[in-house]
Amino acid sequence: MEHATPEAIKRHVKVYISVFVALAFLTVVTVIVSYLKLSLVYAIIVALSIATIKGSLVAAYFMHLISEKKIIFWVLVLTLVFFLALLITPALTGLEIRSYVS
């Protein structure tokens, strides 16, 4: 990205506008779906799927991950491993914590 030509940047700008339209559209969709009163499991699946698509669009295009160097991916893979450990570890010990909450 550092040495992109003005013509290439102009093409990027068109992509940014398309991504913006997609993000706005998906925001409206996720709100409409929330008014359908789906069961909680389906609501979670739909809402988080849409959020993941939106998040991926932001990361891929606005944060330029789609054309980024390998080292950035390795930083993110390492982060993902620790992030998943962070989500899973408390769930494995959840039974003990549950007694404190309720």
Partner: peptide
Amino acid sequence: ILLRTGAS
């Protein structure tokens, strides 16, 4: 997640 799943 933990608070929500643990709450009654």
